[in-house]
Each structure stands twice: as structure tokens, then as C-alpha cells.
């Protein structure tokens, strides 16, 4: 209750200051929109389905790109973790590549794939692949060796061993990496969509700029934050909580 009250006070003050500044008309509305203008843009966007379509297109790209990078990242991470030579060589390269903002891959992607869906997908995959790979690699190393031995001892081999033992055993160690991968992929996607006309939330933002419609820009930004927050809260927190319950780790408060 107290927390709710705190939130209420904070956001009322924030919106109040915003309203006041807008009322004073220090800046023209195409530079500084009113809260009502943003609300109207949000409403209109949902009413004429343009937001729904944008969200749908963006989420589809996200799911596809993220799944790809999770699968690839797991294979890569396991490969790197299980081979000393790869670990000492590739390991360092992966970490240094992670400092490269994923949007830097876009020019390369455009040259390779043209202005296509594939180029955007490539940027999304590159955005999250490294986080997932590094998480998987460290997870594999942190995971107690006993599980692998117990699995082999009970007759698990090859893919069975990976699927039924190594993967579930390393989940608590990689879930934060998966979460980080999602956040990176989300950012990469929006940046990618902003660069060329392709539907999606990123393009919605650029459309706001082209139309000098600051309300629309802010409305889309709010949407992007909201979706990021909801996925984090609903999907990843739930997975984390479930894992902690199963494993008997301290439950998240």
C-alpha cells in the first residue's frame, strides 16, 4: 500500500511538472508535447490499429530473432565451454565483441541481405547472441560437475545428456544471461527498425519525427518501455521464481 502511494505521488508530481511546463508554452508543441496530446496519440494509435500492427510486427521479429540467438548461443556457449582451446581464444573475442553496439552490424547486414527482413533479424540476433553465449559458457563452468557425472552414470549420452541434464542443471546460472539477451535484442530491434522503412515500433518513432508529431514519438517511446517491462516482469521473473522454488534457493521477495 505504501509502495503504491509512493508511486502515485511520484508520478502525479512528474506529470504535474510536465503539464505546468507545457501550459507555460516555453517551447512550441512540436518540441514539447502536452500530456493530453500524448494520451490522444496513444488512443488514436490503438484505435486505428496502427499500434497493434506495429507491436505485432516487432514482436514477431523479436521472437524469431531471439529464439535463433538462444539456440545458436547455447550451442556456441557449450562448445566454447567444453573445449579449452576455444575457451582461451574465442572466449576473449566474444567478450570484446560484446562492447560493439549491435546497431554497428546494420551496415554489414544491409550489404549482405539488402533492405530486407533478414537484415533486421541479423541485427537482432547479433544483439543478443553474445550475451546468451557468454551466459551459457559461464553457466556450464559454474554448474556443479556432479550432475554431468550422475547423468552419464545413469545412462544419459550425447543429446540426451545435454537436454535432460546439462541444460536444466545450468538454467539457474544462465537465466540472467537470457534476460540480458532479451533486453539487448529489444534495443537492437528498435534501432534497426528506425533505420529503414519496415513497419514496426521503430519505424513508428521515425514516422513521428517525419510528421513533426512529438506526441506520437513520446507515445511510442512509452509503448517500447512498457513492452520491455512487461516481458521482463511476466516472463523472466516468473521463470526465475519457478527455478528458485524448485531448487530451493532463496525465493525472490
Amino acid at each position: 500500500m505504501k509502495r503504491l502511494a509512493r508511486y502515485l505521488v511520484f508520478y502525479s508530481v512528474l506529470i504535474g511538472v510536465w503539464l505546468l511546463l507545457a501550459k507555460l508554452k516555453v517551447w512550441p508543441p512540436y518540441v514539447f508535447p502536452t500530456p493530453q496530446g500524448v494520451m490522444e496519440s496513444l488512443w488514436a494509435g490503438f484505435a486505428d490499429h496502427s499500434f497493434w500492427i506495429a507491436i505485432g510486427v516487432s514482436m514477431k521479429r523479436m521472437l524469431l530473432g531471439y529464439s535463433l540467438s538462444v539456440i545458436l548461443g547455447m550451442v556456441l556457449g557449450l562448445g566454447v565451454a567444453s573445449n579449452k582451446f576455444l575457451e582461451q581464444t574465442m572466449g576473449g573475442l566474444l567478450v570484446s565483441l560484446q562492447s560493439l553496439p549491435s546497431i554497428c552490424w546494420l551496415p554489414l547486414a544491409v550489404l549482405w541481405f539488402g533492405l530486407t527482413e533478414k537484415a533486421i533479424l541479423f541485427v537482432v540476433v547479433m544483439g543478443s547472441l553474445l550475451s546468451v553465449t557468454i551466459a551459457m559458457e559461464t553457466g556450464r563452468q559454474q554448474m556443479p560437475k556432479i550432475y554431468g557425472m550422475a547423468g552419464r552414470n545413469l545412462g544419459a549420452r550425447g543429446f540426451q545428456l545435454f537436454w535432460h541434464v546439462l541444460l536444466p542443471a545450468s538454467l539457474p546460472y544462465i537465466v540472467s544471461g537470457l534476460k540480458q539477451g532479451w533486453a539487448f535484442a529489444w534495443r537492437s530491434l528498435i534501432s534497426g527498425e528506425m533505420i529503414f522503412v519496415s513497419l514496426g515500433l521503430g519505424q513508428m518513432l521515425m514516422m513521428g519525427r517525419d510528421l513533426n508529431d512529438m506526441s506520437l514519438v513520446i507515445a511510442v517511446m512509452i509503448l517500447i518501455v512498457a513492452i520491455g517491462y512487461i516481458v521482463d516482469g511476466l516472463v523472466f521473473r516468473t521463470i526465475e521464481r519457478r527455478l528458485q522454488q524448485k531448487w530451493g534457493l532463496t525465493p525472490a521477495t
Partner: peptide
């Protein structure tokens, strides 16, 4: 082999742990 530290799988229930070897 029953390991000294057991190596039971914490992500499985008791029944699923017992089932594991048979499943394999």
C-alpha cells in the same frame, strides 16, 4: 554409482529422479 554427494537432480521431483535412469 551412488555418489558421496548424491548428485540428485534438483530440477526434478523425487519420482522423476527415480524415473531418470529408466527413461534413458
Amino acid at each position: 554409482l551412488i555418489f558421496q554427494e548424491l548428485g540428485l537432480f534438483p530440477w526434478l521431483t523425487v519420482g522423476e529422479n527415480v524415473e531418470f535412469g529408466m527413461k534413458m
